[in-house]
Amino acid sequence: MKKTILGLWLLACLSLNALAENIYPISREMGSGTRSAFVDIFEIYKSVNNKKIDAIAQKIEITNSTGIMLTSVANSKNSIGYISLGALNNSIKPISINGVIPSVENITNKSYTIFRNFNVVTKLSNPLIEDFLAYTVSLEAKPIIQKAGYISVSKGNFKSKNPRGKLIIAGSSSVTPLMEKLKESYVKINPNADIEISQSDSTIGVNSVIEGIADIGMVSREVKESELKKGVKPQVLAIDGLAIIVNHQNPITNLTKEQVRKIFLGEITTWEQIQ
Protein backbone atom coordinates (compact mmCIF):
# COMPACT_ATOMS: atom_id res chain seq x y z
CA MET A 1 0.00 0.00 0.00
CA LYS A 2 2.81 2.42 0.92
CA LYS A 3 4.57 1.63 -2.36
CA THR A 4 1.39 2.39 -4.29
CA ILE A 5 0.92 5.75 -2.54
CA LEU A 6 4.59 6.59 -3.08
CA GLY A 7 4.31 5.72 -6.76
CA LEU A 8 1.26 7.95 -7.21
CA TRP A 9 3.00 10.76 -5.36
CA LEU A 10 6.08 10.49 -7.59
CA LEU A 11 3.87 10.46 -10.71
CA ALA A 12 2.08 13.60 -9.53
CA CYS A 13 5.41 15.32 -8.86
CA LEU A 14 6.70 14.42 -12.30
CA SER A 15 3.53 15.81 -13.90
CA LEU A 16 3.81 19.06 -11.95
CA ASN A 17 7.47 19.41 -12.90
CA ALA A 18 6.62 18.87 -16.56
CA LEU A 19 3.93 21.54 -16.43
CA ALA A 20 6.37 24.03 -14.89
CA GLU A 21 8.74 23.72 -17.85
CA ASN A 22 8.84 26.06 -20.85
CA ILE A 23 6.63 25.34 -23.85
CA TYR A 24 8.55 24.69 -27.07
CA PRO A 25 6.21 25.62 -29.95
CA ILE A 26 7.05 24.49 -33.49
CA SER A 27 5.46 25.99 -36.60
CA ARG A 28 5.50 25.36 -40.33
CA GLU A 29 7.29 27.77 -42.66
CA MET A 30 5.85 30.84 -44.40
CA GLY A 31 4.30 29.65 -47.65
CA SER A 32 2.96 26.49 -46.03
CA GLY A 33 -0.77 26.02 -46.57
CA THR A 34 -1.01 24.22 -43.23
CA ARG A 35 0.48 27.25 -41.49
CA SER A 36 -1.89 29.59 -43.31
CA ALA A 37 -4.92 27.49 -42.33
CA PHE A 38 -3.66 27.22 -38.74
CA VAL A 39 -3.21 31.00 -38.47
CA ASP A 40 -6.69 31.65 -39.90
CA ILE A 41 -8.50 29.09 -37.74
CA PHE A 42 -6.82 30.12 -34.48
CA GLU A 43 -6.77 33.83 -35.42
CA ILE A 44 -3.02 34.17 -34.86
CA TYR A 45 -2.65 37.42 -36.73
CA LYS A 46 -2.47 41.17 -36.31
CA SER A 47 -4.30 43.79 -38.33
CA VAL A 48 -2.18 46.13 -40.44
CA ASN A 49 -3.98 48.57 -42.79
CA ASN A 50 -7.09 46.37 -42.57
CA LYS A 51 -5.06 43.31 -43.62
CA LYS A 52 -4.57 40.21 -41.49
CA ILE A 53 -0.85 39.55 -41.02
CA ASP A 54 0.57 36.27 -39.68
CA ALA A 55 1.66 36.95 -36.08
CA ILE A 56 3.26 33.65 -35.05
CA ALA A 57 6.07 34.60 -32.67
CA GLN A 58 9.40 35.03 -34.46
CA LYS A 59 11.33 33.03 -31.84
CA ILE A 60 9.35 29.85 -32.61
CA GLU A 61 11.20 27.03 -34.35
CA ILE A 62 10.23 26.51 -38.00
CA THR A 63 10.01 23.22 -39.88
CA ASN A 64 9.47 22.88 -43.63
CA SER A 65 7.49 19.65 -43.88
CA THR A 66 4.94 17.48 -42.13
CA GLY A 67 7.53 14.74 -41.62
CA ILE A 68 9.98 17.05 -39.88
CA MET A 69 7.18 18.43 -37.68
CA LEU A 70 6.31 14.90 -36.53
CA THR A 71 9.94 14.05 -35.80
CA SER A 72 10.55 17.34 -33.99
CA VAL A 73 7.57 16.92 -31.64
CA ALA A 74 8.33 13.23 -31.08
CA ASN A 75 11.88 14.11 -29.97
CA SER A 76 11.10 17.07 -27.68
CA LYS A 77 9.00 16.48 -24.55
CA ASN A 78 7.87 20.11 -24.15
CA SER A 79 7.07 20.74 -27.80
CA ILE A 80 3.72 21.49 -29.42
CA GLY A 81 2.97 21.63 -33.13
CA TYR A 82 0.24 21.09 -35.70
CA ILE A 83 -0.23 18.72 -38.62
CA SER A 84 -2.79 17.36 -41.04
CA LEU A 85 -5.20 14.93 -39.38
CA GLY A 86 -4.36 12.32 -42.00
CA ALA A 87 -0.68 12.48 -41.03
CA LEU A 88 -1.21 11.41 -37.41
CA ASN A 89 0.82 8.45 -36.24
CA ASN A 90 1.81 6.82 -32.95
CA SER A 91 5.00 8.86 -32.57
CA ILE A 92 3.11 11.84 -31.11
CA LYS A 93 -0.07 12.58 -29.12
CA PRO A 94 -3.00 14.55 -30.56
CA ILE A 95 -4.84 16.67 -28.00
CA SER A 96 -8.45 17.76 -27.72
CA ILE A 97 -9.45 21.33 -28.54
CA ASN A 98 -12.25 22.69 -26.36
CA GLY A 99 -12.81 19.13 -25.16
CA VAL A 100 -13.17 17.53 -28.60
CA ILE A 101 -10.60 15.07 -29.98
CA PRO A 102 -9.63 15.46 -33.67
CA SER A 103 -11.20 12.73 -35.79
CA VAL A 104 -13.00 12.27 -39.10
CA GLU A 105 -16.18 11.46 -37.18
CA ASN A 106 -16.01 14.63 -35.12
CA ILE A 107 -15.36 16.78 -38.19
CA THR A 108 -18.29 15.15 -39.98
CA ASN A 109 -20.65 15.77 -37.05
CA LYS A 110 -19.23 19.33 -36.76
CA SER A 111 -18.16 19.00 -33.11
CA TYR A 112 -14.49 19.43 -34.10
CA THR A 113 -14.22 22.69 -36.01
CA ILE A 114 -10.47 22.74 -36.72
CA PHE A 115 -10.42 21.75 -40.38
CA ARG A 116 -9.66 23.08 -43.87
CA ASN A 117 -9.98 22.12 -47.52
CA PHE A 118 -7.31 20.32 -49.45
CA ASN A 119 -7.38 22.03 -52.84
CA VAL A 120 -5.81 21.47 -56.23
CA VAL A 121 -5.32 24.21 -58.81
CA THR A 122 -4.88 24.14 -62.56
CA LYS A 123 -4.43 26.79 -65.23
CA LEU A 124 -4.46 24.87 -68.49
CA SER A 125 -6.44 21.75 -69.25
CA ASN A 126 -6.04 18.59 -71.31
CA PRO A 127 -7.76 15.17 -71.39
CA LEU A 128 -5.35 13.63 -68.85
CA ILE A 129 -5.73 16.45 -66.31
CA GLU A 130 -9.52 16.27 -66.65
CA ASP A 131 -9.59 12.48 -66.36
CA PHE A 132 -7.34 12.36 -63.29
CA LEU A 133 -9.16 15.16 -61.44
CA ALA A 134 -12.52 13.53 -62.22
CA TYR A 135 -11.19 10.37 -60.61
CA THR A 136 -10.03 12.16 -57.44
CA VAL A 137 -13.58 13.31 -56.63
CA SER A 138 -15.31 10.08 -57.66
CA LEU A 139 -17.01 7.38 -55.60
CA GLU A 140 -14.22 5.04 -56.72
CA ALA A 141 -11.64 7.25 -54.97
CA LYS A 142 -13.74 7.77 -51.83
CA PRO A 143 -12.50 4.64 -49.95
CA ILE A 144 -8.88 5.64 -50.59
CA ILE A 145 -9.47 9.15 -49.23
CA GLN A 146 -11.34 7.88 -46.18
CA LYS A 147 -8.77 5.19 -45.41
CA ALA A 148 -6.07 7.87 -45.47
CA GLY A 149 -7.95 9.79 -42.76
CA TYR A 150 -9.67 12.50 -44.80
CA ILE A 151 -13.25 13.35 -45.74
CA SER A 152 -14.26 12.73 -49.35
CA VAL A 153 -16.20 15.21 -51.48
CA SER A 154 -17.14 12.51 -54.02
CA LYS A 155 -19.52 13.57 -56.80
CA GLY A 156 -20.36 10.37 -58.67
CA ASN A 157 -19.01 7.34 -60.47
CA PHE A 158 -15.94 7.42 -62.69
CA LYS A 159 -15.07 5.77 -65.96
CA SER A 160 -11.66 6.59 -67.37
CA LYS A 161 -11.21 7.60 -70.99
CA ASN A 162 -7.64 6.30 -70.68
CA PRO A 163 -5.87 9.40 -72.02
CA ARG A 164 -2.15 9.10 -72.62
CA GLY A 165 0.50 11.53 -71.35
CA LYS A 166 2.45 12.89 -68.38
CA LEU A 167 1.23 14.92 -65.41
CA ILE A 168 3.44 16.94 -63.09
CA ILE A 169 1.84 17.63 -59.72
CA ALA A 170 3.60 19.92 -57.22
CA GLY A 171 2.97 21.59 -53.89
CA SER A 172 1.85 20.99 -50.31
CA SER A 173 3.67 18.39 -48.21
CA SER A 174 0.39 17.85 -46.34
CA VAL A 175 -1.51 16.94 -49.51
CA THR A 176 1.32 14.87 -51.01
CA PRO A 177 0.71 11.59 -49.08
CA LEU A 178 -2.94 11.55 -50.19
CA MET A 179 -2.02 12.49 -53.75
CA GLU A 180 0.50 9.63 -53.86
CA LYS A 181 -2.27 7.16 -52.94
CA LEU A 182 -4.63 8.61 -55.53
CA LYS A 183 -1.91 8.46 -58.18
CA GLU A 184 -1.19 4.82 -57.34
CA SER A 185 -4.83 3.81 -57.68
CA TYR A 186 -5.45 5.91 -60.81
CA VAL A 187 -2.57 4.48 -62.84
CA LYS A 188 -3.98 1.01 -62.24
CA ILE A 189 -7.14 2.20 -63.99
CA ASN A 190 -5.27 4.18 -66.66
CA PRO A 191 -1.80 2.68 -67.26
CA ASN A 192 -1.32 5.22 -70.08
CA ALA A 193 -0.72 7.94 -67.48
CA ASP A 194 2.74 8.92 -66.24
CA ILE A 195 2.36 11.00 -63.07
CA GLU A 196 5.21 12.75 -61.26
CA ILE A 197 4.64 14.29 -57.81
CA SER A 198 6.97 16.91 -56.33
CA GLN A 199 6.61 17.86 -52.64
CA SER A 200 7.19 21.44 -51.47
CA ASP A 201 4.57 23.82 -50.07
CA SER A 202 1.25 25.32 -51.14
CA THR A 203 2.63 28.60 -52.43
CA ILE A 204 5.24 26.85 -54.56
CA GLY A 205 2.50 24.55 -55.84
CA VAL A 206 0.36 27.46 -57.01
CA ASN A 207 3.31 29.34 -58.50
CA SER A 208 4.48 26.22 -60.34
CA VAL A 209 1.11 26.04 -62.10
CA ILE A 210 1.11 29.78 -62.86
CA GLU A 211 4.61 29.52 -64.36
CA GLY A 212 3.77 26.39 -66.37
CA ILE A 213 6.19 24.17 -64.43
CA ALA A 214 3.42 21.92 -63.08
CA ASP A 215 0.05 20.83 -64.42
CA ILE A 216 -1.64 20.56 -61.02
CA GLY A 217 -0.80 22.38 -57.80
CA MET A 218 -1.52 20.95 -54.34
CA VAL A 219 -2.77 23.57 -51.87
CA SER A 220 -3.64 22.90 -48.21
CA ARG A 221 -5.28 26.30 -47.68
CA GLU A 222 -7.78 28.51 -49.44
CA VAL A 223 -6.58 29.85 -52.78
CA LYS A 224 -5.84 33.58 -52.52
CA GLU A 225 -7.61 36.23 -54.56
CA SER A 226 -4.24 37.35 -55.95
CA GLU A 227 -3.62 33.79 -57.19
CA LEU A 228 -7.05 33.53 -58.78
CA LYS A 229 -6.34 36.75 -60.68
CA LYS A 230 -3.34 35.01 -62.26
CA GLY A 231 -5.61 32.45 -63.86
CA VAL A 232 -5.55 29.42 -61.56
CA LYS A 233 -8.74 27.42 -61.10
CA PRO A 234 -9.28 25.70 -57.73
CA GLN A 235 -11.02 22.43 -56.97
CA VAL A 236 -11.61 20.84 -53.56
CA LEU A 237 -9.82 17.51 -53.31
CA ALA A 238 -10.86 16.52 -49.78
CA ILE A 239 -11.54 17.95 -46.32
CA ASP A 240 -8.80 17.62 -43.71
CA GLY A 241 -8.67 18.28 -39.99
CA LEU A 242 -5.79 20.06 -38.30
CA ALA A 243 -4.47 18.23 -35.25
CA ILE A 244 -2.58 19.95 -32.44
CA ILE A 245 0.13 17.56 -31.30
CA VAL A 246 2.40 17.17 -28.26
CA ASN A 247 5.01 14.72 -27.07
CA HIS A 248 3.82 11.50 -25.39
CA GLN A 249 5.56 12.54 -22.15
CA ASN A 250 3.38 15.65 -21.91
CA PRO A 251 0.45 15.14 -19.45
CA ILE A 252 -1.67 17.78 -21.23
CA THR A 253 -4.66 16.27 -23.04
CA ASN A 254 -6.80 19.34 -23.82
CA LEU A 255 -6.37 23.01 -24.74
CA THR A 256 -8.81 25.74 -25.66
CA LYS A 257 -8.51 27.55 -28.98
CA GLU A 258 -7.52 30.67 -27.09
CA GLN A 259 -4.72 28.85 -25.25
CA VAL A 260 -3.32 27.54 -28.55
CA ARG A 261 -3.51 31.05 -29.97
CA LYS A 262 -1.61 32.55 -27.04
CA ILE A 263 1.05 29.83 -27.12
CA PHE A 264 1.89 30.60 -30.74
CA LEU A 265 1.71 34.34 -30.17
CA GLY A 266 4.33 33.85 -27.44
CA GLU A 267 1.98 35.04 -24.65
CA ILE A 268 1.81 31.67 -22.86
CA THR A 269 5.31 30.27 -22.35
CA THR A 270 5.00 27.48 -19.73
CA TRP A 271 2.62 24.54 -19.42
CA GLU A 272 1.87 25.67 -15.87
CA GLN A 273 0.18 28.82 -17.21
CA ILE A 274 -2.65 26.89 -18.86
CA GLN A 275 -3.86 25.27 -15.64
Rank of each mutant, 00 (worst) to 15 (best):
Y135W: 06
E211H: 14
I151R: 02
K110P: 00
S138P: 06
N192G: 02
V104I: 15
S111I: 10
I239N: 02
Q275G: 09
A55F: 07
E105F: 04
S160E: 04
D201M: 04
Q199G: 03
K229V: 01
R28D: 14
M1H: 14
N119P: 04
L16H: 05
R116D: 08
S198W: 12
I263M: 07
L242E: 14
Q58R: 06
L178V: 10
L88K: 02
F118I: 11
N50V: 00
V206Q: 07
I41M: 01
Y45I: 01
V120K: 05
N162A: 08
Y186F: 14
V104C: 06
N126S: 08
S76K: 13
I213V: 15
I144L: 08
Y186C: 08
I44T: 02
N109T: 02
I151Y: 00
G33T: 11
V137C: 00
E196V: 15
E61F: 05
N157T: 15
L133R: 09
V120C: 06
E184P: 00
I80L: 08
G171D: 10
L8Y: 07
N207F: 08
L70W: 05
T34N: 09
N250M: 13
A87F: 07
T66V: 13
I245K: 08
M179E: 11
K77I: 04
E184C: 00
A57V: 01
T256I: 12
G86H: 07
F158N: 10
T108D: 12
A20I: 04
I239Y: 04
V219G: 09
S36C: 00
E29N: 14
V246E: 13
T113P: 01
K230V: 05
N117H: 13
M179F: 09
G241C: 10
M179W: 07
R35T: 07
K183A: 06
A238V: 05
F118A: 11
I245P: 06
I168N: 08
S76H: 13
I5P: 01
D54F: 03
M1S: 15
S138Y: 04
L228Q: 09
P143N: 07
S36D: 12
I195A: 11
W271T: 03
W271Q: 07
G33Y: 09
E43G: 06
A214F: 12
S152I: 05
A214M: 06
S226P: 00
T269I: 12
V206G: 00
N119A: 01
Q259K: 13
P251M: 05
N247E: 03
S202R: 04
G212A: 10
D40V: 05
G99A: 11
I189S: 03
T63Y: 03
S79K: 13
G81P: 12
K183G: 07
E29Y: 04
P234F: 05
Y112H: 07
N50R: 12
L255R: 06
N192Q: 14
N89M: 01
N50E: 15
G171V: 11
I263F: 10
V48M: 05
S226Y: 09
S173W: 04
R35N: 08
L242W: 06
F42D: 03
V206L: 09
I101T: 10
K51T: 02
N250E: 11
